[in-house]
């Protein structure tokens, strides 16, 4: 991927600008400028809570002679990060036509282990084996990033104990349950020199020695000696530090986050302009009305919009109202 910062002649006029300072497969640090605080925070919030990923949501236990209770194990399984790249191809289970779950809305993983040796046995995420028809080869595979390649520990078995279960991983967002969170921690700050006086240092003698400086002090000009306080200044440059917990790459989290915002905004715009076109009905409507397959649906708080590949975001990133200011989807980003 090409992470070169966008080179634009007059970035000011064009809208938000992103400058990436560090990126690897766990975290990305970047600066977002030329945006306002509410937008910057929205992006942070969406990256924390509204990016659809997949996680184990249903566990069918056939045999469990371990010491841990069924729901205890199910809870632990749910928290195992699964690869969510390509999750957009999966339907939300509630939107799927099937009765319970199917390969269009879920990924099935099975776990079958029995301790036959004389020593206690550790069962880790590696032992989860995908089963059944799959639309995508990597989607729903446990994310394993430790050196031994084991992944998170699920439970331990004593000699003779056995565990046999089927896990159904479904798509969801972190607002519903934290297991669907793609990100671990998201660092976010602005104004490293406190020029805006949004914070009020408390110190005993000298704030310079008592407070560790922000890591972004070098990015911005320190206030000049005796510089008058600018009452009209608003925050403009925001520093993010996005760390992934595994399901998506750090870049994926950011792009997906933007995509979710776009969808939400598009949904909102659509709602506001509804009378001018689209549906005949222009009164207030409940979420059920908006659903269905027409694609112009109501966006639920869980980010679903009709389940289908939406008209906005996704591939094109074009709304009926022309190109969104935030880049033409994939073009500028990837």
């Amino acid at each position: 991927m090409d992470y070169d910062p966008m080179v634009m002649d007059d970035a000011e006029s064009l809208g938000p600008v992103v400058k990436i300072s560090q990126a690897d497969n766990v975290r990305v640090k970047f600066e977002l400028s030329n945006a306002d605080l509410s937008f910057a925070n929205s992006l942070r919030r969406v990256m924390l809570a509204e990016i659809p990923t997949i996680a184990i949501d249903l566990v069918e236990i056939e045999e469990n002679s371990s010491v841990l209770a069924d729901e205890f194990i199910a809870h632990r399984l749910g928290l195992i990060p699964l690869n969510a790249e390509g999750a957009e191809s999966l339907l939300y289970s509630r939107d799927c036509d099937c009765d319970n779950y199917c390969e269009h809305c879920s990924v099935k993983l099975v776990l079958h282990a029995k301790c036959t040796g004389g020593e206690n046995m550790s069962i880790s995420a590696r032992d989860l084996v995908p089963a059944g028809d799959r639309m995508h080869q990597t989607l729903g595979m446990p994310v394993i990033r430790d050196e031994d390649g084991l992944g998170p520990l699920i439970l331990k078995l004593r000699p003779g104990q056995e565990i046999k279960l089927e896990c159904i991983a479904k798509k969801g967002i972190a607002k519903e349950h934290a297991k669907w969170a793609p990100s671990a921690a998201i660092g976010f700050e602005y104004d490293p020199h406190n020029k805006l006086h949004h914070i009020d240092y408390w110190y005993e003698q000298d704030p310079k020695t008592e407070w560790p400086p922000s890591e972004y002090v070098d990015w911005e000009e320190p206030p000049a000696e005796g510089e008058p306080f600018d009452y009209d200044a608003v925050p403009n440059r925001f520093y993010y530090n996005v760390e992934t917990s595994g399901p998506l790459g750090p870049d994926g989290i950011v792009t997906e986050g933007i995509k979710v915002i776009q969808q939400k905004l598009a949904g909102l715009i659509h709602e506001l302009t509804e009378g001018e076109g689209g549906d005949n009905y222009d009164g207030p409507r409940s979420p059920e009305y908006g659903g269905g397959g027409d694609g112009f649906g109501y966006s639920t708080s869980y980010g679903g919009n009709g389940g289908n590949q939406s008209a906005w975001g996704g591939a094109g990133g074009t709304t009926p109202f022309g190109q969104t200011p935030y880049g033409g989807g994939g073009n500028t980003w990837s």
Binding site: L48, A49, A178, I186, G187, F188, E189, N241
Partner: peptide
Amino acid sequence: EHEDMPFSDTGL
């Protein structure tokens, strides 16, 4: 909700 909680500069 997680996203409504205060967070430190490191994201804690």
